[in-house]
């Protein structure tokens, strides 16, 4: 560039311009530096570590170790709990959002539900597990009341809060509200005219949902469900405080691994982490792909 400059042209001009452009990029430098140092860098180092042995040599041994039965089962339970709580959360959340937005209920219902959802979706972790222990634990209010009022022993039925269903039931407490929060605006996007147009063309209410409303909402429902899945899959605190180490889910396995409670094999830990990122990454990737297909009729 400098070669084309002649004395007749002010040399300073392009320099100022490129300087200004550098300054423009400088404006976002702190953010990218921060993201690199505290988000991308550390995660990337884990991914590298997953393919290294203790001496830093390349190996696939850690990946192979992921196939140990207890690790596979940990992943499997995690996936089951996450999937169950995501699908049920999406279904019940949809029902609640539908009732509040389109159900023709009094006006106060909606803001109350939305505010409560904002609170409940953030009421996760340790205190949530306390709340469920105090309610459905062996001495919990509901357990005791069922026993005293109906002579019904909840725990005789095989129910256990420290189990797959117990954990799923607990996770639903933040999953359902999250679905409500995201889906209510999407339900607002359904134009009343669509329903009227379909009705006047002879469609029943069910046919309207089947052919119009549900296909329009599908990307939002699917996307939120996958978000709920990732949300549950990465959760540690609720399960840890609820079940201690008795329920073998992958986050608790990794937690114990990091704390050095169990066998101390750092590189296996990296592989565990890689597996987790893969699963949340795949669920998000699937969401993006499906969404692109479902949304080809949107801008």
């Amino acid at each position: 560039m400098a070669q084309t400059e002649t004395t007749s042209l002010p040399i300073a001009a392009p320099r100022v311009r490129s300087g200004a452009r550098a300054a423009t990029w400088l404006g976002v430098a702190p953010f990218f530096l921060f993201a690199l140092m505290f988000l991308i860098g550390p995660t990337f180092m884990l991914l590298i570590g997953a393919f290294q042995d203790a001496e830093g040599q390349f190996t696939l041994a850690n990946m192979a170790k992921l196939l140990q039965p207890n690790i596979v089962s940990a992943y499997w339970i995690s996936i089951k709990v996450s999937a169950a709580s995501a699908v049920l959360g999406a279904a019940f959340g949809f029902g609640l959002a539908y009732a509040a937005v389109l159900g023709g209920l009094p006006r106060f219902v909606r803001p109350v539900l939305m505010t409560f959802s904002g609170v409940a979706s953030n009421f996760a972790g340790i205190p949530l597990s306390f709340a469920f222990l105090a309610t459905l634990g062996r001495l919990g209010l509901v357990t005791v009341l069922l026993m005293e009022l109906f002579g019904f022993n909840l725990y005789r039925t095989g129910f256990n809060l420290l189990s797959f269903w117990g954990l799923t039931l607990t996770y639903l407490y933040f999953q359902i509200p999250l679905m409500v929060l995201i889906l209510a605006p999407a339900l607002d996007g359904l134009k009343p005219e669509w329903r009227e147009a379909s009705s006047i063309l002879g469609a029943s209410g069910w046919q309207y949902w089947r052919h119009v409303a549900f296909p329009v909402l599908w990307p939002a429902i699917l996307g939120t469900t996958l978000l709920l899945f990732a949300n549950a899959f990465g959760a540690v605190a609720t399960a840890y405080a609820l079940t201690g180490s008795s329920l073998n889910i992958v986050t608790i396995l990794l937690y114990a691994q990091i704390r050095g409670d169990v066998l101390h094999d750092q590189n296996l830990g990296y592989a565990l982490a890689l597996g987790m990122i893969l699963i949340t990454g795949i669920s998000n990737g699937a969401y993006i792909l499906l969404r692109a297909r479902a949304e080809r009729w949107l801008r």
Partner: peptide, 29 residues
């Protein structure tokens, strides 16, 4: 009810179903 009246209606906002093609919209009824 509207779906029993044998009526056609055109709305100010068009109210086309966004998830269907032109042919899909026309054939919906």
């Amino acid at each position: 009810r509207p779906n029993q009246r044998d009526i056609g209606m055109v709305f100010q906002s068009y109210a086309l179903f966004p998830n269907m093609t032109v042919a899909g919209n026309i054939g919906f009824g």
